[in-house]
């Protein structure tokens, strides 16, 4: 099965809003999703710059290309589990 791609923005504003806590996924992920994810950090995904698009606040995380705004560890893990459950059926 193809791994789920998780892209975490580590730009300044995402980082101060808590991206570092999401990066824990890389070093100490929950056991059930451990082998099923692939983490990529981005220096800045530019969502914060794009004021016209009216994005909410960071941290911004993309899970398989789907954007999560105001992300935190739970939100991201839940999203990953959701996708994993979806593929089982």
């Amino acid at each position: 099965m193809e791994k789920i791609k998780v892209k975490i923005c580590c730009g300044t504003s995402c980082f101060v809003m808590g991206a570092a806590q999401i990066q824990v996924l890389e070093f100490d992920p929950p056991a059930d999703i451990k082998d099923k994810i692939e983490i990529e950090e981005s220096r800045c995904m530019n969502y914060c710059h794009n004021t016209a698009a009216k994005y909410n606040r960071g941290p911004f995380v993309e899970v398989n290309g789907e954007l999560i705004e105001e992300a935190n560890f739970e939100k991201v893990v839940n999203k990953i589990r959701e996708i994993l459950d979806g593929t089982k059926d």
Binding site: Q23, F27, E41, R43, N46, H49
Partner: peptide
């Protein structure tokens, strides 16, 4: 981050995050 993105784009260089520099207070180096 944005500055690095500009230089990466203009000079066609490859820039990768260096995970050995992980820290919860300071974003990682590349």
């Amino acid at each position: 981050g944005t500055t690095a993105n500009i230089i990466e784009r203009e000079l066609c260089l490859k820039c990768e995050i260096d995970k050995t520099s992980f820290d919860t207070k300071i974003p990682m180096a590349s």
